[in-house]
Computed example of a mutant assay.
Amino acid sequence: MEIFSTSVTLLCLCLFHSTRSETQSMCKGNLPPVKHVAVNSNVNVPCPVLNATEIDFRLFKGQYMVTLISIKINDTSNNINSKSPNFPANLSVNVMDKSTSFILLGVTTNLTDLYTCEAEINYPPPFKTVPNTPQTIVLVEESQDKSRDICQLESHLVWWVVFGVMAIYGLVMTCIVFFLRIKCSQIDTPLKDRECRRKWQGVQHPTWKGFLDTVV
């Protein structure tokens, strides 16, 4: 039952959430990494590599931006300015390997979604958006099953997509056949009238004449 609900969640994310980058669409290629996390735990959402001294990081939950954090890197200190303090996420920056990520803190089940991290360079100019936009699917669960294989979940997702396509195809074909049947029933033809008379009046068989009746 838990695998079923997880598969349905992945299917809904694929069908109803458009991504921020066409090159990294969920439904055009492979699914983004899926992270299973228990309630009230922390989860790491990767961001683009730090490649400028002043850069803005935006975190999207589905299609909506939930936080914006600006950072300024110099030789003495790192200045981090958060403009969306209401969302439980902090930005982690590793100056050594230039890796960055958002850390979702104390997650709850309503935070299950597709997360996209975008970066925009403010300095040095020119201002531009980093083309790489990492995506992560976060599944917050009541009890985390570590032995679950993500390949199995993707297989269930494929089957649900196939089932949905077949159901829609069957519904469309049924409507078409029903429509054509109504149209045909409204067409009056001489052949149709002849067949109806035969059906309700019966078939008239020729009368047999005796041998003596044929002798003159």
Rank of each mutant, 00 (worst) to 15 (best):
S77P: 01
L91M: 09
F60K: 00
M96E: 14
N44R: 10
C117D: 00
V66S: 09
P32N: 07
D113Y: 02
L91D: 00
K72F: 11
K98C: 13
S41I: 01
K72R: 15
V95M: 12
F57Y: 15
I71V: 15
K61E: 13
T67D: 05
S99W: 04
L111P: 00
N78A: 07
V107A: 07
N40W: 06
K61C: 08
A38N: 08
L104C: 07
M65L: 13
V43Q: 00
P46V: 01
T76S: 10
F102R: 04
T53V: 10
D75N: 11
P33G: 05
G106P: 09
Y64C: 09
L105A: 13
S41Y: 02
S77Q: 12
S70V: 05
S92Y: 14
L114T: 00
V49C: 03
P46H: 01
H36I: 06
F102K: 03
G106V: 11
K72L: 12
P88V: 08
T112F: 09
T116I: 03
V34N: 06
I80R: 05
N94A: 12
K83I: 06
A89H: 02
P88T: 08
N51D: 11
V45I: 14
D97S: 15
S92Q: 12
V39N: 04
L104T: 03
K98E: 07
L104H: 04
L50C: 04
S77F: 09
M96D: 14
F57L: 11
N78D: 06
A52D: 04
N74H: 09
I71T: 04
G106F: 12
K98D: 09
S82C: 12
L31T: 05
A38P: 03
V93E: 08
I69N: 01
N44Y: 05
R58W: 04
Y64K: 13
V43M: 02
D113Q: 10
N40A: 10
V43H: 00
L31A: 07
Y115T: 02
A89S: 11
K72T: 14
N90Q: 12
A52S: 14
N90W: 05
D97C: 10
P48R: 01
M65P: 04
V45D: 00
I103T: 14
L31P: 02
S70T: 14
K61G: 04
N94S: 15
T100A: 15
I71D: 00
S41L: 03
V34W: 05
L91Q: 00
K98Q: 14
Y64L: 11
D75Q: 10
T109Y: 08
F60N: 02
H36F: 14
K72D: 07
V34I: 15
F60R: 01
N94R: 12
S82N: 15
S99A: 15
K83W: 12
S101Y: 04
